[in-house]
Every structure is written in C-alpha cells, then in structure tokens.
Write a protein that binds this DNA or RNA. Structure first.
Lengths: 259, 259
DNA sequence: TTTCATTGTATCATATTGCGATACAATGTA
DNA sequence: TACATTGTATCGCAATATGATACAATGAAA
C-alpha cells in the first residue's frame, strides 16, 4: 500500500469498527442473538465476537439474558436516536408542523431524509391505521421504492436523478412493488412536474403514499414530508384534492435557514 | 489485580469502549462537536480522539462538516433506535393501544421503561401542545422526577421502593421540580394506593402528568403509560374523571406474556 | 495587521492490546 | 447415549493503538 493509504490506516481503529458491526447485527428481524449468530452476521472470529459482545454488555449497549445467553439491544440504542434528533435542525423545525398536519388530516404523517440511496424516517406521527414498522423512527428503505424518495429525487438536476434511477437498488416489499426503472423514471418526472410524488402498493398493499420535498436554502432537497392513506378509503383524485394542498403548504414552510 | 480481574480484562476491548464514549458525547445540548470538545467531553487523549472520530466518520456514524471540521451524529444513530424498538416486545404490544388512547384523549401519550434510576421514553405519541423534547424517543430522565417513574416505583415491594427513593438522583427541571424526598415518598405511596401516579410542574411548568404502570407476567413493573396535559386547561379532578380510567384500561391491557 | 492561543493534522517509537488458535464445558439434537 | 453446536476460557505473539510531539491552520485579541 502507498504512503497515502498507510496514512489512512493509522487513523482507523479496527477494533472500534468491528465492535460497531455487532451493533448493526440487530434489526427488525433479529431481536436477540447468541454469540454464534453474531459471529455469522458480522463475519468476525468467534473469540473476537465474544470480546466485543462482552464489552458492549459491560458498557450497557447490549443486555444479556443469562438463561439463554442471548444478547439484545438496550435503551442506549434508543438514546442515540434522541441525540440524533436534537442534532438535526430540520427535525426541530418540522416537528410542530408535522403534528399540526397530522391533526388536520387524521392520517399517518412522516418526514424522511435521503441517506445514500435510501431514505431514513426521522419523524413519524402515526394514526390508528399505522402499522408498527411505520411508527418507528430510524427505518431505512430504498429511495426509489417510496414516494418520499421519489419526491426528493424529482428536485435534483435531470442528469443526476437519471443516474440515481439507473443505479440505485430496488427492493420488493409487496407483489406490486415497482421494479421497473422506466416506470420509476416516469413517476419521478411526473413528480418533478407536479411538485409532489404519488405511490401505491409500494411498501404495503392498498396503501397510497404522497410526498412533497423540503428544499434547503441552497436549492438542494433535504427531506420529504410524506402522508400515507388507505386505498380502501381514498382515491388519487381525493388525495390530490384533500391532502396535497396541505402537504405542499407544510413542506414549503419547512425550509431550513442557512446555518 | 487478581486472576478474576485479569479474566475480565482480557474479554474487554478498551478501544471499542472508548470509541463508544465519543458517540455518547452528543446530546440535547451538543449537536455538533470539534475534536477538542470531543476530547474534553470524553476525557480521551487528543490523538485517540482524532483516531476514534475518524473511524466513526469512515464507518458512517458521524458526519463531518469539512468547512468547520465539526462532527455530528448521522442517520445511523436513528437506525439504532429502530433496531431497539423491534427488539422490545412491550413496544410492539403497546403501540397500537397508545395510538388509540391518543386518538381518544387528544393529548400527549408516552410509554417509558425503567433503566437504572432513570426512565427512558420508548414510545411517544405527540399532540399539538407537545414540546420538541417531549416528542423524542430515547429521552432519559430521572425516575423520581416523573409520574411515570413514580408509577413504576409504586408497584415495587415497600423496602425496595424506599431504598430507591432514598438513593436515586434528582434533577431540577423547573423551579417547582420536587427535590423533597419525603414528598416524593408520599406521592409514591399515594400512587401505590391509587394504582396511578400524578405529577405537576416536574419537567415543564404548568404541565400535569399522570401515569399508570404496566405489570409484567412476573408481577414486576416493566413500563408505564403516561399522559401529559396542560394545567391551564385541566384540573386534577378533571384528569381523574376523564383521563385516568382510560389510562388504566390501556396500561392494564399491555401485559406482556411470558416469553 | 500582527501576535499569540487554540485547534486540527500528521508522524513515529514503543508498549500494550487484541487476535485467533485451541481446549474444554455446556447445551441441544438425533 | 452419542454427536454436533454453541459458549467460555486461555495464551503466545504480532499488530495495533498509544501518547508524545511537531507543525499547520484558524481564530481571537491587541
């Protein structure tokens, strides 16, 4: 390796990086894990896994069930979201407006931010109809598969959004989740034209999603406000008439100032 | 150090533990930090801080503003809460019931769990009146200072709760926050008698809190359902008449089964 | 504008830490 | 009961992480 590479290496602490991989082994499908499962999911050596799991337990990040010897996330995981949400000025700015919108519409209201090729939900105001997964802050889903992601993409320069549509990953959440990149391109162009994005059946069957981008002071998108409703009770026309105007008003009022 | 101490030491990875301290340096008052501030807040050597910050940046946990050279939490912080919330069966069980209660009462509804001498909020259903801090999952506050904490304590055996009241820390959030342990003891005894806890002016002036414990299958408390309302619009009598019955019904319906 | 203080970056000799191989215990399954 | 899998404990050793240090960059005060 070159001198430049070597320079990078001496500022990188491998033990920390490996330990963080244990934290990332837990997700919506892996609530608790034993040492062997942790080693498998992280690709780490068994002894290393034992050391890192023990350290995370002693520092309070993992709880250990002494009977089953399985580890699970502790409250410290939740506390990290608390620190994140305080550090994100858009969240502070948006929260009261999202709550107001939720009160007005009586439907699920979210705010998501672009993160690589995904969006991450940073504010979630649930209603009666909201599934558990859809109530949780921190959920990450592919941008191309969501109205929120498409609303954000729609505000990027044309060549940039075209590259995103061609290259970013897709995931199938329902039998109807769109995997057709041409179709997604059409939907993003439509969103660029309308100023909001519309989706149906993407994450949940019979669920309509509509999202509007939040534009930063620099003209770049920073987030999207999203509303989801049941297709059993709503049509696109009704959504455009009764929800979209308020959604756009809310999104437009959440423009973060220059720091 | 004895052989037993040495045994413990070789399974503890200091570099990981130190790196985690950097993550914990961010909170509601520290949204972004430079290297010197990180070193101060963590007690780590300047070079170590540089290495850990660089590693957390490269692994995606911290974002770095190249202009100001300051670090801030990334979406990975929020994602950790997502993993935690899936791993906590009480949260999954409770969420729809809390949403229903919120719809019925139109006020702020939370669920908090005991964590050491604190409570940590793991579900938050805000309303129009809710302050930003009170909308955030992962917030940690001293148990003795909150109706939720007292509701939980009230269900512990008498000697155990007495020890907690005598020893656990208190924090003053408002000029009216109770620091009188005798008074807290009275309030906890009252909660033991009533089955719910009542507070006023503790975290926010002119805010009334009322909480009911959620008891696990083993008879131990696991969490508390909490409602907060404005003292401008509510009295204790009115809360006891219009909120407490529904609060108790909700708390009683969230009893996690034996695993 | 200059000078000084503070913060950030880069480097290196070295000691200590963390590694991974291994043995054995405990638990689960057939 | 026997075997497979998982978890725990140990140790020799190489590589990592340490912290001291020098210097660059930036900010603040005179």
């Amino acid at each position: 390796m070159s001198t430049a590479d070597r320079k990078q290496d001496t500022l990188f602490v491998n033990s920390l990086a490996k330990g963080l991989r244990l934290l990332e082994a837990f997700d919506e499908e892996h609530h608790s894990l034993g040492l062997s499962e942790l080693a498998k999911r992280t690709g780490l050596d068994k002894s290393a896994t034992q050391r890192f799991a023990n350290t995370l337990h002693q520092t309070g990040y993992l709880m250990k069930d002494e009977a089953t010897r399985r580890f699970r996330p502790s409250h410290k995981f939740a506390e990290m979201a608390y620190a994140y949400l305080w550090s994100d000025p858009v969240v502070q700015l948006a929260m009261p407006k999202l709550i107001e919108l939720s009160g007005r519409l009586g439907e699920t209201i979210n705010m998501a931010e672009l993160s690589g090729s995904d969006i991450v939900y940073v504010a979630r105001i649930p209603c009666q109809r909201t599934t558990f997964a859809a109530t949780l802050v921190g959920r990450r889903v592919p941008a191309l598969n969501t109205s929120g992601g498409r609303a954000i993409l729609a505000t990027l320069p044309e060549t940039e959004r075209r590259a995103c549509i061609e290259n970013w990953p897709l995931t199938r959440f329902t039998p109807e989740t769109t995997q057709d990149r041409d179709r997604i391109s059409e939907l993003v162009e439509e969103a660029a034209h309308l100023g909001y994005s519309f989706s149906r059946n993407e994450l949940i069957l019979k669920e309509i999603g509509v999202a509007a981008p939040i534009i930063g002071a620099d003209g770049r998108p920073v987030a999207a406000v999203h509303c989801s409703v049941s297709a059993y009770h709503w049509t696109r026309e009704k959504v455009e008439q009764d929800i979209v105007p308020f959604l756009l008003d809310t999104a437009n009022s959440i423009t973060p100032s220059v720091r």
